[in-house]
């Protein structure tokens, strides 16, 4: 078979595995929370049912072309992030479309979906969507600073913009992981990671009670289904990115599941302990100490 065709098929397989893992995590994490609160909680397969339900709605309302394209942009952001990263280190099959400059492209894809959502939600004309989007964009812009500085610090450290090379440089035990060899960059990135996951301290974007669910307020039926698919894929893609950059990547799927789950728990634990930031607080917070750590990481890697 044509090699590019094989590559595409394996990329689709990656997507399928990641989608199912994301959907299961969406059920399992609330389940753990419910068990801590002495409840039964939702079934672990609830996310599947919700998506099937939303796709089986018989009516849907549209507000224009951008309203349709918004969720597609969002999903493209999630899938694109996944497609340009090596997922399993050392495996030919799960390298996806990783290439020499993928680190920069991946940084761009972090922002891509939010912009698409901004266009789509704006066309719905709902004021709460506009508020949600402006909050989301300011918060994303704010946490991109420490994130980008951390990533650039890693690029300086390893002298490459290729994620595969960064993963390769971290092999040989946990003392070789970037989190041990470059703790400043890791700190900046892990703080930015909290913002990227949109969990509790930084979840004012979606604030269900205050601005009913924020950007997706007007989305329903299949369009909401597309957004839900993205909510399963995008976080896992981000987890894989952080695992590749800081925790030495994964050489097999079980290792990937374990590592990403533990990294995810970092944002969950912070989320249950700390109350919600308002967006002006979170922007100021990201531009304070995390930004300084990021700058320090660059200086330390460059000159010491």
């Amino acid at each position: 078979m044509d090699p590019i065709l094989v590559k595409i098929l394996y990329a689709l397989l990656t997507l399928f595995i990641v989608l199912n893992y994301g959907l299961l995590i969406q059920g399992i994490v609330p389940k753990i929370g419910a068990r801590v609160g002495r409840r039964h909680g939702i079934p672990f397969y609830q996310a599947y049912l919700d998506i099937i339900k939303n796709y089986s709605k018989r009516t849907r309302v549209t507000h224009g072309i951008m309203f349709y394209i918004g969720p597609v942009f969002r999903l493209t952001g999630g899938i694109g992030l996944l497609m340009f990263m090596p997922v399993i280190f050392g495996s030919n099959m799960f390298q996806n479309f990783s290439f020499t400059g993928d680190l920069l492209l991946v940084l761009y894809f972090q922002f891509f979906g939010v912009l698409g959502m901004a266009l789509g939600a704006a066309e719905s004309g709902h004021p709460h969507s506009a508020i949600g989007v402006s909050r989301g964009l300011s918060q994303t812009t704010a946490f991109e600073f420490p994130l980008t500085l951390g990533v650039l610090s890693l690029a300086v450290q390893y002298q490459t913009l290729n994620i595969s090379d960064i993963v390769a440089a971290q092999q040989g035990g946990f003392m070789h992981w970037s989190i041990m060899t470059n703790p400043l960059a890791a700190a900046a990135m892990l703080i930015a990671f909290l913002g990227a996951m949109g969990r509790a301290p930084f979840d004012v974007v979606l604030a269900p009670q205050e601005i009913p669910i924020g950007p997706p307020t007007e989305y329903q039926s299949g369009l909401l289904g597309v957004l839900q698919l993205n909510r399963a894929i995008f976080p896992i893609a981000k987890l894989i990115l952080f695992m590749n950059l800081l925790f030495g990547g994964a050489t097999s799927w079980p290792e990937l599941f374990l590592k990403t789950f533990l990294i995810y728990m970092w944002s969950v634990f912070v989320g249950v302990v700390f109350p919600r930031f308002r967006v002006d607080h979170s922007v100021r917070w990201f531009l304070g100490v995390p930004l300084l750590i990021g700058i320090l990481a660059i200086i330390v890697t460059k000159f010491f």
Binding site: R39, I42, Q46, L49, V61, P212, I213, T217, E218, Y219
Partner: peptide
């Protein structure tokens, strides 16, 4: 929640 009942903030959804 264990019966699949969840609350949504907007009538659209």
């Amino acid at each position: 929640y264990r019966y699949g009942i969840q609350w949504r903030p907007t009538p659209r959804q």
